[in-house]
Design a protein around this nucleic acid. Structure first.
Length: 596
RNA sequence: GGUCUUGUAGCUCAACUGGAUAGAGCAGCGGCCUUCUAAGCCGCAGGUUGUGGGUUCGAGCCCCGCCAAGAUCACCA
C-alpha cells in the first residue's frame, strides 16, 4: 500500500482515539513536506481544530504524538502552524529503494485479459497538404497519451481517420490537371505530400486571381466565389468523385498514394504509428445510413429543400446540419459513421479523440447525436482537447505561408543537434551512422519535450529562432543526465566495482533520501498523468528528477567514494534514476542515447 | 451578440487541484573544468499572479463584476 494512504488511515484512527470523531481517510489532507522543513509527509490539521477545540499547533502535536507512538515507520515530527511534518524512518525508504531497484518494470501496470481497451484517435490529417507544427503537437500528444495508458495497464488501439475525400483534395487535383504536366513525386524529386500541397497552394492563388477579376467585372463576392472557374472545376471533380467516375477515382487514388507515402516518412521520423487506419471515403456512407435511420426514427428532421438537421435546442445548443440538400454528407456525418465502425470492430471501453480545441463544439454535438441514435457509448467519448500552437506573428495560416512544415522543422533540429554535438566533440570515436542516430535522438528529444512539457489545454507559443534550446529545462538536458549515469555504470563495470546493495547499518544523506522519495513518486505521477490526460506531468517530473540527480552527481563522486557500501548504494541509486528517467521519457516518445 | 477557453518574472512555462516564504529555464550579471560527460553546478537580480469585490483559519486556483487575448456559433473539413 502506498505510504500516503497508510498515513491517512492512521490519522483517521488518531482522530477517533483523541477526539472520538469518525472521519474518512479521503478527508485527510496530506502533501509532500516542503524542502525548507524537516520531514517527508505533511498532514494539514486545520480541518480538525473544530473537532479538537484546541489551537492548530496543539492539535497537530497531539496527533503527531499519537502517530509516533503507534506507527512504526514514523520516527518523529515537528509542527509549523497547522502543518504536521512527519519524518519517515530511513529503513522505510531503504525498503522502498530495494523494491525500485529490483523491479525491472517499476511504475508499470501489466495488461491482463480483462484490461480496459482504450482507443486513441490522433493525427487525422487532410490529404491535400503536408503535416505542419500543429499536427506535430497533435501527433506527439496522441502517441504519448497512448503510451501513458499502456503504462497504466490498458489495452490501447491507436487509430487515425484520414480525411481523404472532399473538396480539399479536389482542389489539388484540379490544379494538377490544369498545370501539372503529369508531374509526379519522382519527376519533381519532391515528397508526395509536398507536391500535392504545392498544387493546393497554387489552386488557391489562381482562385484568388479569378475572384478578383470577377469582382472587377461587377459580381458580388458570393457570386464571384461560386463562379470562379477553378472552384467550379473542383466542385465538378467532387461530383464526379461521388458517382465513382473512373478517371477521377484513378487520379484521386494516385494523388492520395503520393500523400500517404509522404506522411509515412514524416510519421516514421516523428516516431509515431497506428494500429488501425480508417479512411473517410470508407466511413462517410455508413454515417449517411445512420443519419437516414435517425430520420426514419424521428430523431432528426428534414427540411423542404431535402437537407437533414438535428435540433439540439433542448440541449441548449443550435440546429446542426447532417446531410446537405443534395444528399451529400458533412464532416459530422462522417464522424458518426467512423464511430459506429470502430465500436463494431473493437470492444472499446474508452474512446479518446485527440483533436484541437477549435472543435470543442463539434465533439459536444457528436456525443449528443450518437446518444440520440441509441448508442449509449456516445456520452462517454472523451475529447482530448488541446490548444493551438502560435507563432510570434500569430496563428499559422497555410494560405499565407506562415506554417512551420514538419519535415523542415525536424531536419532543422537535427542540423542544430549535429552542430552542437560536433562542437562539444564527445562522440569523436563513433562512426558516422552512430553519430547521426544520436543527433536524431537528441533533436527529437528537444522537439518532443518542448511541446509535451506544456499543459495540453493551453495555447502555446513557438518561436522558430529561439524556442528550441538544448540547455536548461529541455529534453536534451534530461537525456544528458541519463547518458552521464550510463557513463558511470560503464566505468564501474570496467573497474570491476561491485553493484551489490548492502543497506544494513548504512546512513543515508539528505540528497540520497531526496532522490529515493522522488523515485517513489513515479507510479503516482504516471497514474495522475493518465487520469488527467497530461503528458506534461510526466515531462515535468522527468525534469525535476534529472535536476535533482545533477545536483547529486555534482556533490558526490560516486566512483571515488572509498566506503564500498556507500559507493555501491550510490551506484544503484544512479542506475534507478536512469531507469525511471528512461521510462518516463519513453512515455513521451523520447529515446535516451547511451552517450551524447 | 451567445457559448467556451486563457491571462503568473522582460520571454517561454510550472505550482501535486484550496495550503506554508508563487517555482524552473531562457535572456542579464558574477563564480566553478588536473577530479565519474561543463548539453552541467553554485550565486545575484527579476512578482501587488490582468483588475475590483466576495467566500474562510487560508485564494494564482472557487463565486460575481469589469479589462484584454483567442476559439466557436456554416449546405467548409
Amino acid at each position: 500500500m502506498n505510504i500516503d494512504l497508510q498515513i491517512r488511515n492512521e490519522v483517521v484512527k488518531a482522530i477517533e482515539a483523541l477526539y472520538s470523531i469518525k472521519t474518512d481517510s479521503a478527508n485527510v489532507q496530506t502533501q509532500m513536506t516542503r524542502k525548507e522543513f524537516e520531514g517527508d509527509i505533511t498532514v494539514v490539521v486545520f480541518p480538525y481544530v473544530k473537532m479538537s477545540k484546541k489551537g492548530p499547533e496543539q492539535t497537530a502535536s497531539e496527533i503527531g504524538n499519537y502517530l509516533v507512538e503507534k506507527v512504526e515507520m514514523i520516527d518523529r515530527f515537528n509542527v509549523v502552524k497547522g502543518f504536521l511534518n512527519l519524518v519517515i524512518s530511513q529503513d522505510y525508504w531503504f525498503g522502498v529503494f530495494t523494491q525500485i531497484n529490483q523491479e525491472e518494470d517499476f511504475g508499470l501496470k501489466n495488461t491482463t485479459e480483462d484490461s480496459e481497451l482504450v482507443m486513441v484517435e490522433y493525427s487525422s490529417p487532410n490529404t491535400n497538404k503536408p503535416l505542419h507544427l500543429g499536427h506535430i503537437r497533435n501527433n506527439l500528444l496522441g502517441f504519448s497519451i497512448a503510451e501513458i495508458m499502456k503504462t497504466n495497464g490498458k489495452k490501447v488501439v491507436k487509430t487515425n481517420i484520414v480525411n481523404d475525400r472532399g473538396i480539399h483534395i479536389c482542389k489539388s487535383m484540379y490544379a494538377w490537371l490544369q498545370s501539372g504536366k503529369n508531374e509526379t513525386p519522382e519527376s519533381a524529386n519532391k515528397k508526395g505530400d509536398h507536391l500535392v500541397g504545392d498544387y493546393y497552394v497554387q489552386f488557391d492563388k489562381n482562385y484568388k486571381v479569378e475572384v478578383a477579376e470577377l469582382l472587377a467585372a461587377g459580381m458580388t463576392k458570393e457570386q464571384a466565389e461560386a463562379e470562379a472557374p477553378s472552384m467550379k472545376g473542383a466542385r465538378e471533380l467532387l461530383l464526379k468523385w461521388e458517382v465513382h467516375d473512373p478517371e477521377v477515382w484513378k487520379l484521386w487514388r494516385t494523388m492520395n498514394e503520393w500523400v500517404y507515402a509522404g506522411f509515412d516518412v514524416t510519421y516514421k521520423k516523428l516516431g509515431v504509428d497506428f494500429d488501425k487506419i480508417y479512411y473517410e471515403s470508407e466511413t462517410y456512407t455508413v454515417g449517411r445510413d445512420e443519419v437516414m435511420r435517425g430520420l426514419n426514427e424521428g430523431v432528426f428532421e428534414k427540411q423542404e429543400d431535402g437537407s437533414v438537421w438535428a435540433n439540439l435546442e433542448a440541449e441548449g445548443l443550435d440546429r446542426k446540419i447532417l446531410l446537405r440538400s443534395d444528399g451529400t454528407s458533412v464532416y459530422m456525418t462522417q464522424d458518426i459513421g467512423t464511430a459506429k465502425l470502430r465500436y463494431q470492430d473493437y470492444s472499446i471501453d474508452q474512446m479518446i479523440y485527440v483533436v484541437g480545441n477549435e472543435q470543442n463544439y463539434h465533439f459536444q454535438v457528436l456525443s449528443i447525436l450518437l446518444d440520440k441514435l441509441g448508442y449509449d457509448w456516445g456520452k462517454h467519448l472523451y475529447h482530448f482537447s488541446y490548444g493551438m500552437v502560435e507563432l510570434p506573428q500569430g496563428r499559422m495560416k497555410s494560405r499565407e505561408g506562415t506554417v512551420v512544415d514538419a519535415d523542415d522543422l525536424i531536419e532543422g533540429m537535427i542540423d542544430v543537434a549535429r552542430k552542437t554535438s560536433e562542437e562539444l566533440g564527445k562522440l569523436d570515436e563513433y562512426s558516422n551512422e552512430e553519430k547521426e542516430e544520436i543527433y536524431r535522438k537528441i533533436a527529437l528529444g528537444a522537439l518532443k519535450y518542448f511541446i509535451l512539457k506544456v499543459d495540453p489545454k493551453k495555447t502555446m507559443m513557438f518561436n522558430p529562432e529561439e524556442s528550441i534550446d538544448f540547455n536548461g529545462n529541455t529534453g536534451p538536458f534530461i537525456q544528458y543526465t541519463y547518458a552521464r549515469v550510463q557513463s558511470v555504470l560503464r566505468k564501474a563495470a570496467e573497474n570491476g566495482i561491485s553493484h551489490e546493495l548492502l543497506l544494513e547499518g548504512l546512513k543515508a544523506d539528505q540528497k540520497e533520501l531526496e532522490l529515493i522519495k522522488k523515485l517513489y513518486n513515479f507510479p503516482e505521477v504516471v497514474a495522475d498523468a493518465a487520469n488527467q490526460y497530461s503528458p506534461a506531468l510526466i515531462a515535468n517530473y522527468c525534469y525535476d528528477l534529472a535536476k535533482e540527480f545533477n545536483q547529486f552527481y555534482h556533490e558526490f563522486s560516486i566512483l571515488k567514494e572509498e566506503d564500498v557500501q556507500k559507493r555501491s548504494f550510490r551506484l544503484n541509486l544512479a542506475a534507478c534514476t536512469a531507469k525511471v528517467i528512461n521510462k518516463g521519457m519513453l512515455m513521451l516518445g523520447i529515446e535516451c542515447p547511451e552517450r551524447m
